[in-house]
Design a protein around this nucleic acid. Structure first.
Lengths: 196, 196
DNA sequence: GTCTATAATGGGATAGAC
DNA sequence: GTCTATCCCATTATAGAC
């Protein structure tokens, strides 16, 4: 589900153009007038559809963050093996990135500009997400499926790659998704060396 | 060498505070007045030391980019084996990140706000950097030391991790650098699975 | 070199006609 | 719902006293 679903089509348009502009110029660098121009109206007319500039950022970032949190909850609570859970988390990142790369990019880089209360909620969601992933990794390590390493650092390495995916999607428009998924799992799980 | 070396100490102070503020609030989100306040002067007084706000960003980003480019040129041109070159590139990223995490963060996320001509120069430097790294990986692949994979994607995965390092340094102030280096090389080269 | 005063610009947001 | 006119504010940058 896209974070812009379930809204009047005019608001959807606005959100889509806002996402693109926030992504390329940053939340502070993109103006409401620019967004309005892309949608084909004058700046002040936006206020018939939105409450404020922050509301646009809020919808784009928070919907995506909540979706992420919801989905990893499911994986964490499932009865899959730890390795299968890791596999699913990787697939989850790919899926949400492919469905809405703009929202993903925004969530990761512009969340700092959320208003105070929502910024707090975002950080909670993100921390919860990271903790669930960490528990999965700890379990895998405990069961001996995964090498011994500082769990936080392992989490950092994996998330670094997964969180940069949107940039890859932007650069290579004609990527093959299945190929990408295979390479990612190869790289993260087995590394790049031929003879381990 | 820090990118702020070789300047009057007052300008160094300004650059350091600018880097911190640009990093936390973004180039557009940080104001000259805020920077001035951190240095202990009024906003307009900054202009006795700098030409413009853009000059601050320019110095911070471009010096770091040029240093990066210079250093990978050395590695690329050396007579080391491909695997050793990869090893050196990883170490290079760690070194420059640890020496100046603020500049690294800025270079990677705020370069879009450079003025047109410098933005072009930055992109050239970055592309050149990526190309040299790519050639090293291609060579390693050709020699059979590294698994077969889309070279661009392999480059993407490795750089994703290396380029996120500054975030790790910010979050875990008391990280052990040697341990970090060991984990990174383990993770990138051999992955996280115990039984490959 | 630092200050205060002040331009000049562009931003988010509101009012009110249509 | 869209427009024009406008308000209010923050910003970068300059001028000129000290």
């Amino acid at each position: 589900m896209k974070p812009t679903d379930g809204l009047t089509s005019r608001k959807q348009q606005i959100l889509e153009q806002a996402a693109k502009l926030f992504r390329t110029r940053g939340f502070k660098g993109a103006s409401l007038r620019q967004i309005a121009e892309k949608v084909g109206m004058e700046g002040p007319s936006l206020y018939n559809h939105i409450k404020s500039k922050h509301e646009l950022l809020s919808i784009l970032v928070m919907n995506n963050a909540r979706e992420f949190n919801h989905r990893i909850n499911e994986i964490h609570a499932s009865s899959l093996s730890s390795l299968d859970k890791i596999d699913r988390v990787i697939s989850l990142h790919i899926e949400l990135t492919v469905v809405n790369p703009d929202a993903m990019s925004l969530m990761l880089s512009e969340w700092t500009h959320l208003e105070a209360d929502e910024r707090l909620e975002y950080v909670k969601l993100r921390d919860s997400y990271e903790n669930q992933f960490k528990e999965i990794l700890e379990q895998a390590m405990f069961e001996g499926d995964v090498v011994q390493m500082d769990v936080n650092f392992m989490l950092f390495m994996i998330l670094s790659t997964l969180r940069s995916l949107y940039a890859w999607c932007a650069r290579y428009k004609n990527y093959n998704r299945l190929e990408m998924e295979a390479y990612l799992k190869q790289g993260i799980l087995k590394g790049i060396l031929k003879k381990a």
